[in-house]
Design a protein around this nucleic acid. Sequence first.
DNA 1: GAAACATGCCTAACCGTTTCGCTGAACTTC
DNA 2: GAAGTTCAGCGAAACGGTTAGGCATGTTTC
Lengths: 337, 337
Amino acid sequence: MAATIKDVARTAGVSTATVSAVINESAYVSPGLRARVLEAVRDLGYAPSQAARRLRTGVSELIAIVVADLSNPFYARVVCAAEAAVAAWGFALVVFNSDEKPEAEKRIISRVRALSCEGLILVPVGGAISALGRDADSWRIPTVLLGRTLEGDGLDAVTIDNFAASYHATSYLIDLGHKRIGAITGPRHLSTGLARIEGMQSAMSAKGLTVEPRFVRSGDFREEVAYSAARGLLEQPERPTALYVANGLMALGVMRAIADIGLRCPEDVSVASTDNIPGIRGLRPNLTRTEHPIVEMVNEAVRLLVDRMKRGEAVEARHVVFPSALVVGDSCAPLRA
Amino acid sequence: MAATIKDVARTAGVSTATVSAVINESAYVSPGLRARVLEAVRDLGYAPSQAARRLRTGVSELIAIVVADLSNPFYARVVCAAEAAVAAWGFALVVFNSDEKPEAEKRIISRVRALSCEGLILVPVGGAISALGRDADSWRIPTVLLGRTLEGDGLDAVTIDNFAASYHATSYLIDLGHKRIGAITGPRHLSTGLARIEGMQSAMSAKGLTVEPRFVRSGDFREEVAYSAARGLLEQPERPTALYVANGLMALGVMRAIADIGLRCPEDVSVASTDNIPGIRGLRPNLTRTEHPIVEMVNEAVRLLVDRMKRGEAVEARHVVFPSALVVGDSCAPLRA
DNA sequence: GAAACATGCCTAACCGTTTCGCTGAACTTC
DNA sequence: GAAGTTCAGCGAAACGGTTAGGCATGTTTC
């Protein structure tokens, strides 16, 4: 078995209290003993049992993150950033994938509670609210929503301005002279999906244009469906001259579809999209897209979460919105007369 | 504070042992008492403390994964697959990123132990052995190595045949007539890095060719260094006509470098690489590469790990090697005379 | 020089479970 | 009806830490 504090105490010839004091630097210990203790710790490869410490002090050093689609490189980056952010606060990160399934999300959240995680970072898919427990008596794990919001939840949230992101990307296409602009959207039932649709439509009507339904296909934020949708869209007799794609993963599919059909980007069709995933920089042409400050978002989310963990339900729910920046590549060309 | 098992016992007028028996269904309890206990549980809103349970039973339902570079989409996929595999066995996954730093890896491993994770999936960077404790008396967490191996560790491992992968990719280039073949390699101190170098060299010498040192640059398996290395390599007065790149992330950088220099792939330079990351399919030209069966590998790793957790050190260390498949794209062209 | 205080470490109680061994009652068996 | 068997339920000892309180020392203060 692993070494315990008693083994260390015995080896160093001191009491467990002294070992504890050395480990936690919670009391003065003379240099001599201190050195002996540290040596014993090293020799035995001792690491304090988190379970015991938690039982006594009430702190588990676990924060859970539940993402909606771990196979999406965007969320993989989120997890990467979260691991770093959480580690900086002294926590370890438990990762779950709800795979966009509300039932899975519910199951996961009760599991998170059973594991006595101290906090929860949640990219919600919709099944969450009831699972989190809105009843007054049932205890809620401190939670921060990431990327997407829920209606009337009273939870802290960190998002980006999705409306502005798609508005800008679409405006950019319009300013290049495009009028027949199509879209591969995300699901309407997600706050991100909806806001990006609305942002695009707003940009269009602001310039007196309309979005033709036949130029719009709804995707699921994943690559394969977007690929087929793009093929369907672009193989019509009359096709849009530009496309707004609601996320990066779908943009990969769209670019592949364009190439497979034998069209050229940007000569035949301009493409702009939202969100940043690794691999998108490898695309040729270089995709014009709005990028999200993932690391900053996640850091802020963890900051809010840790604060909430400390202060409990006392504080009002906070909602931090990050701006996204338009990164101009060469996937968009002016409309040819 | 939350109710404890003692509160429940007192309320129901039974002992804590009985409450425990009811909760866990670990022993027969007469219907009458059982009902009283359940009622008390409901009234008090009692939920067992996982921490106490963990301390007592030693089961944490936690498996840790430590990857060498979480920002590499390849490992992000590994984590994704691991989450699913581990969940299927009833565990939750704690994710750590050693960021290719041996000291970080050491620190993380003692943390894994402190969290009383029951198993460890490790993509080692080298600092691991001592941290895992090779002394007979110090307790080792059940561990399976993934992707990379360590010398004489006696640990279970799941890898791919890196030698064969680079051998095949290189042979493919040679068969197209290329003779001046360059390489962007991984670090020699990693088993993957070394095996891929050796596989390439073997393929070359098997066909009577030699690898010219000036055509080789060593990378770090990341994009940026590979980008610069490729520029350096290809901007020489005399440049290689084909390039073997030791992983997918570096391939993204290389393709970007080729485009930025103004060369064309495959007309001016052919490229083949190893390993699969999402986003690589979006590349144009479509990259010729060897792909790894990530999901199968990870599933096998988890299977080995769970088995090891059950059987202890009794079993001999097992090493499972997966083959990789050459996926031919259009990033390689026959050498022009 | 005795009282008061500071220092440095130890002893032991406690956190909330699970679980082993035990008790006494009820039920068989001859 | 005494001895042996079951069996539901209990008491208490772990599990591995933290920490309040205590106890020898050594040092200051009048």
